[in-house]
Simulated assay, not measured.
Amino acid sequence: MRTRSGPRVAAVAFVAALSLGAAGCVPVPEQQGPPPSSDGNSVEKLGQLTVAEAGSMRGYSRDKFAHWRKTGKNCDVRDSVLQRDGENIKLSGCNVVGGRWESAYDGRSFTDPSDVDIDHMVPLANAWRSGADEWDDTRRGEFANDTDRPQLIAVSASSNRAKGDQDPSQWKPANRSYWCQYAEDWVTVKHHWRLTVTSAEKAALTDMLEGCTWANKP
């Protein structure tokens, strides 16, 4: 589990690097893991989420959540997250071609970037059923490429595909020591984007956050 201090300053630098990327290849500052989840009470934020039944998948398409956006010449958000979340990164231009990644979902380590997926913490299809069906494609693209929240994380391809579009009532990381972090990150993303939760999803998140002292601090 990553610590709750330190990366916040680096996260600001990471976002700045992405904003400059359109001008060319911009090295991503060294940073461990996605941006910090929140500076508030996760249990309180969970309580502020609207509980509703999951919406229909009618009209859904991943193409309505355009990703990955370019962050420089011949590189995109996927490359940037791989570089941010890995160690000993090797580049060919802007493309990540080597390094080391530890998947927080299952504790597995990889040195080949092709074995690593960039997971959307709140899956695109889940977002669609939670309110994103009412957004325009521009907002959906912002959501799909959100590096300001802990919405994007490099994990093992197998764990990402096992998760699919399931919420925490249906799937949890095999690495139980990551459950507190996972629940807080999920709540942070849904709270910021004003997405709904089902009653089962809220119950699962409540259970996962129970006993997480830093998730309940005022």
Rank of each mutant, 00 (worst) to 15 (best):
E44P: 00
R69N: 08
Q32M: 02
K172D: 05
K64R: 15
E184T: 13
W186Q: 00
S114A: 11
G99Q: 14
P36G: 02
R140W: 03
G40K: 02
V122R: 06
A13T: 02
Y182G: 03
E44N: 07
A52V: 08
V43I: 07
E142W: 11
A17K: 03
V51G: 00
E201K: 04
G47W: 05
Y182Q: 06
G40Q: 02
H192F: 14
S103L: 15
Q181D: 00
K64F: 09
S42V: 10
F143R: 00
N95M: 09
W101S: 08
R161L: 15
A203V: 00
Q166D: 11
G21K: 09
K73G: 09
P150Y: 01
D146M: 03
S177Q: 12
E201G: 02
G93M: 10
R78N: 13
G33Q: 01
I89K: 12
P27S: 12
G141N: 06
R161E: 14
Q31P: 05
F143V: 01
H120R: 08
D39C: 03
S80P: 08
V51C: 05
T138M: 03
N175V: 07
S109C: 12
F65E: 06
S114K: 14
A13M: 06
G47Y: 09
E201I: 00
S38V: 01
P7Q: 04
K70V: 10
G164S: 15
P27M: 14
K90A: 15
L18D: 06
T50L: 12
R129T: 07
S37V: 01
K70Y: 05
S114N: 09
A16R: 01
C75L: 10
S38K: 02
A215Y: 00
D115V: 06
G72D: 07
D76K: 07
K172V: 14
L18Y: 08
T196C: 04
H120D: 03
D133S: 12
D167R: 13
G107I: 12
K70Q: 15
I89Y: 11
K73V: 04
M1N: 04
R140H: 03
E87C: 11
K64M: 14
A174H: 07
A144S: 08
A127M: 08
P168V: 12
D106G: 09
I153K: 01
W135M: 11
K163F: 10
R139H: 10
R140C: 03
Q181T: 01
A203T: 02
D112S: 14
N145G: 07
R78G: 06
V187L: 05
Y182T: 04
P218V: 12
S156A: 15
V187Q: 04
Y60V: 03
E142H: 07
A10C: 05
E53W: 00
V155A: 13
D115I: 06
I89Q: 14
S5D: 00
G211S: 06
V77E: 07
S177D: 11
E210K: 06
W179Q: 04
N160T: 09
S19Q: 12
K202Q: 09
V9G: 07
R129N: 09
D207T: 01
D79P: 10
D76G: 10
